[in-house]
Design a protein around this nucleic acid. Sequence first.
DNA 1: GTGAAAGCGCTAACAC
DNA 2: GTGTTAGCGCTTTCAC
Lengths: 328, 328
Amino acid sequence: MAVTIREVAALAGVHVSTVSRALSAPHLVNAATRERVMASARQLGYRPNRAASALTTGRTHNLGLIVSDIANPFFPPLIKAAQAYSREREYHVFVADTDEDPQIEEELIRTLTKQVDGVVLVAPRLTNQTIERLSLELPFVVVNRKVKGVSTVLMDIGHGTETAVAHLCDLGHRHLALLAGPRTSWTSEQMRRAAGRAAEARQVQLTVIGPNAPSEHGGTAAASRVLASGATAVIAYNDLMAIGVIEGLTEAGAGVPGDVSVVGVDDTVAGRLSRPKLTTIMMPTAAAGRAAVDLLLQRIDDADDVQAQTILETGLTVRESTRPPAKP
Amino acid sequence: MAVTIREVAALAGVHVSTVSRALSAPHLVNAATRERVMASARQLGYRPNRAASALTTGRTHNLGLIVSDIANPFFPPLIKAAQAYSREREYHVFVADTDEDPQIEEELIRTLTKQVDGVVLVAPRLTNQTIERLSLELPFVVVNRKVKGVSTVLMDIGHGTETAVAHLCDLGHRHLALLAGPRTSWTSEQMRRAAGRAAEARQVQLTVIGPNAPSEHGGTAAASRVLASGATAVIAYNDLMAIGVIEGLTEAGAGVPGDVSVVGVDDTVAGRLSRPKLTTIMMPTAAAGRAAVDLLLQRIDDADDVQAQTILETGLTVRESTRPPAKP
DNA sequence: GTGAAAGCGCTAACAC
DNA sequence: GTGTTAGCGCTTTCAC
């Protein structure tokens, strides 16, 4: 076994409790002894055993980060930022992937409960009710969802959607299709509403298609319905779905952006790399990752169960997949 | 605090140790009492506190997974597979990103040591010597690296590289460039050797350029040197770099694959999505993730420090970025 | 300012 | 087959 607080105490010629204090509450300890303790600790290469301290303090210094699909390029920048920021704040993070399955999600939270001080749920597939229930036992921060009593980080997709609709209308489109995401996605619901409002305001037709799987395949599968609807422009739930629908449309003989314009959401590498380069609603994923951890630690440290909320701006990145509609 | 083994014991009318046994060594307990214990546990929603049991058993049931850059599309499928497989085996995984920085990598391993039963190092940036030293304190599995005394999962990039060289030679190329990766990358070194051998065997010229950053930027930055070398085909260290060099070449007026052919490595979504679609050496990332966890758990459970090794096959995925050289 | 002692939740000898 | 006991490494009263 590795070096313990005992050995540090022995070397420094003090009691273990003094070592403990020197390390976690330095101001309670004489400067001279503190120095001696620190020196011994350094010399022995002492590293506190967090499992042990978790037992007494109830603080594990670990966080959970639960996402629906790590392989979706939306998540990695968020995970990366959350993890880097946690490391700065001396927290480790368990990253878990639920494969879009609410049951796995709940089970994961359950088994993680004892091992973490809090959990960040990104775009959960769980119902609000379930999240509310679980949040009684453990601090949560939810990203892209509103849940009563739970701190949230929201990316203002409503605004981004309006901008996208405006962009398409300005190009001259009069009939838009919206490819919805998973049924329990808050983001998808926000998009639907915002698109509905914006379309009405501008007097253009809107066809909602879905729910669809938030993947390339979800997009290709929806292509025929887009064509059947007669829409000349489509806004997809995310970049992956947008790329998929472009494939599907192209295969069906409809050019993008020649015949149909396509807008994605997330602004992932995928959209930047695929051709035509995707016009997409930018989601501030890295900022969201940091903000979520920030809120979570705040909640953990203060324990005044204040429900905080951070709203992040979205924007429209116009590239090559949108263009005025073909003249009939 | 949540429900403990004590309360379960009280409800079942037995001693805590009986509960502990019923849960972790059921065969040591009378079937009837076991049932009673189980029932009580279920009724109270008891979940063992792993931090506590870690303290006595020395087993945390956690693993560490350390990668250089989560945002590199090479990693997510590996992480996803490793995590899903760990979950099946009742392990949680800490995922950490080192930002390509060996110092962060070492520090991360150090702080993780007490909290995990073992660590998977994917394409580490640390020196073999450092890894050997660290492996004395904790079981390791290294992916795409050979380290004395440490179990490894290798993707046979040498073979993939030979296949790629053969493919380019068959197309008629007589001068190839190899864009090397980071200096401490085992994969890069294997590629260099295999490409050297294969080029010599086929009597074609090979120019090695690098080291380069394993990113798009690393690729664009190297484009001018590719052009200067006079090579008509280039094999890049990974897909990202390949995409970058294509951008760089295109900007410099050299068409891909018209003037120069480009081969990537990894077979990520990025390569499939970008245009021209990338010809690339396929790396079995998901399989590697599972294999790594498998080896690690084996090592943890058996403790006979046998050094195991799993070799995974690579292959060549031919798409649009390679073509016969332009006639001079 | 520092030491002594109890205890976090659990497991692992050792009795019986 | 089950209870008793000690103790994992650390923190935290409580004395002094």
